[in-house]
C-alpha cells in the first residue's frame, strides 16, 4: 500500500493539471491492480503461519506466535521436500534432453539436404495443435502394459516429447538466420560435421536455448495432468501433485495446505526476481504456440 501512495506522490508534476490528474488516475488503477495481485499472496503467507484458532480469531494481523514449525513438518514429515526434488529432477533432466535432441534435429531440418526435411518440420509443428488430452488414454494403456514400473522415465519421456514441437519451432527459426559460412569454416579446418555442429553452431544457440529452457522447465514443473495419471506412488510424486494431498484434509489444519502452496510458489518467485526479463520473454515466446 505504501508503494502506491509513494508513487502517486512522485507522479510527474510537469504538464497541465488535467494531464497530471490522468496520470494520478492511472497510478491509482495500477496500484489497485498490483494490490489485487500481491495482497492475496501476502494473506496466504501470513495465514500459513497461523494455527487454526488464530486463522479465525486474527485473520488480518501478523501471526501472534510465529509457527514456522509447520513448514518444517510439511517439508519433512509430509514429504513435500521429496516432492520438490522429484519435480526438480523431472524438469531439469527433461529440459537437458530436449536441448540436446532438438538442437540436432533442428539443424538437420534447416541445414542438411534431404528430401523430407520440410515435411518433417511440418510433422513436428503439427504437435502444437494436438491437445494433451487426446494422447492420455493411449499413453496410459501403453504405460500400464509396461507395468507403470518406470515412473521417472515415463515422466521425462513425456515432458521431452511435449517440449519438442515448440523447441524445434524456435530453434529452426533461429538456425535459419545463422550464416552458412560458420560451419563451413569449421569443416574446412578438418572437423566432421557433427563436430563442427557442436563446436561452432551449438554455442551460437544460447539465446533460443534460454527461451526453450525457461518455457519447458516451467511447463514440466507446473504439470498436473501427466503426474496425476502416471504416478501412483507417493515416492515419485512431483510437487504439484504432492501438495494436493492437503486439500482433502483442508479443515483439519489450514496451515498445512497453505504452507505447501507457499513452498510450491517460492521457487517461481525467486527465479522471477533474478531473471525477470528472461522469464517474461521465455514464457511469452509461447505466444507463437497456437
Amino acid at each position: 500500500m505504501s508503494t502506491r501512495t509513494a508513487l502517486v506522490a512522485n507522479a510527474n508534476p510537469q504538464g497541465n493539471r488535467q494531464y497530471s490528474r490522468l496520470t494520478a488516475l492511472k497510478y491509482v488503477f495500477l496500484g489497485v491492480y498490483a494490490l489485487a495481485i500481491l495482497y492475496p499472496l501476502f494473506f496466504l503467507l501470513i495465514s500459513s503461519l497461523k494455527d487454526n484458532d488464530e486463522i479465525f480469531s486474527n485473520p488480518w494481523g501478523l501471526p501472534i506466535k510465529w509457527g514456522l514449525n509447520v513448514y518444517y513438518q510439511v517439508w519433512t514429515q509430509y514429504e513435500v521436500g521429496r516432492y520438490f526434488f522429484n519435480s526438480l529432477y523431472y524438469s531439469l533432466l527433461s529440459v537437458a534432453i530436449t536441448i540436446f535432441i532438438c538442437s540436432m534435429a533442428s539443424y538437420a531440418i534447416v541445414r542438411m539436404k534431404w528430401k523430407l526435411s520440410k515435411w518433417t518440420l511440418g510433422f513436428f509443428l503439427l504437435g502444437l495443435m494436438v491437445p494433451v488430452h487426446s494422447t492420455l488414454v493411449p499413453l496410459y494403456i501403453t504405460a500400464s502394459k509396461l507395468g507403470l514400473n518406470y515412473p521417472r522415465i515415463t515422466m521425462i519421456v513425456i515432458f521431452v516429447a511435449f517440449a519438442i514441437p515448440f523447441s524445434v519451432f524456435v530453434l529452426a527459426g533461429f538456425i535459419q538466420g545463422i550464416p552458412k559460412e560458420m560451419e563451413e569454416s569449421g569443416v574446412i579446418d578438418g572437423c566432421s560435421l557433427p563436430k563442427a555442429f557442436w563446436k561452432i553452431i551449438f554455442p551460437l544457440l544460447a539465446p533460443p536455448l534460454a527461451t526453450i529452457t525457461i518455457f519447458n522447465f516451467l511447463g514440466s514443473w507446473n504439470d498436473l495432468i501427466f503426474s496425476l495419471i502416471f504416478i501412483n506412488d507417493e515416492y515419485y510424486k512431483p510437487i504439484q501433485l504432492g501438495i494436493m494431498r492437503f486439500q482433502g484434509n483442508f479443515s483439519t489444519r489450514y496451515s498445512f495446505l497453505l504452507s505447501a502452496i507457499v513452498i510450491a510458489i517460492v521457487p517461481s518467485v525467486a527465479a522471477y526476481m533474478v531473471l525477470q526479463d528472461k522469464i517474461v520473454s521465455g514464457i511469452t515466446a509461447g505466444a507463437v504456440k497456437g
Binding site: 540436446f100 540436432m104 534435429a105 542438411m112 504437435g127 494436438v130 493411449p138 501403453t142
Partner: peptide, 30 residues
C-alpha cells in the same frame, strides 16, 4: 557432408522417435 544419410539420421532420429511415440501416434490411436 550435408547430404550424408547417417549424419542426418543421427541428428533427426532421437527427437523424431520420442515425439512420434508420444504425440502423433497416441493421438491417432485415440
Amino acid at each position: 557432408l550435408l547430404r550424408n544419410k547417417t549424419t542426418i539420421l543421427m541428428f533427426i532420429l532421437p527427437a523424431l522417435i520420442i515425439y512420434s511415440i508420444v504425440l502423433p501416434l497416441p493421438a491417432v490411436s485415440s
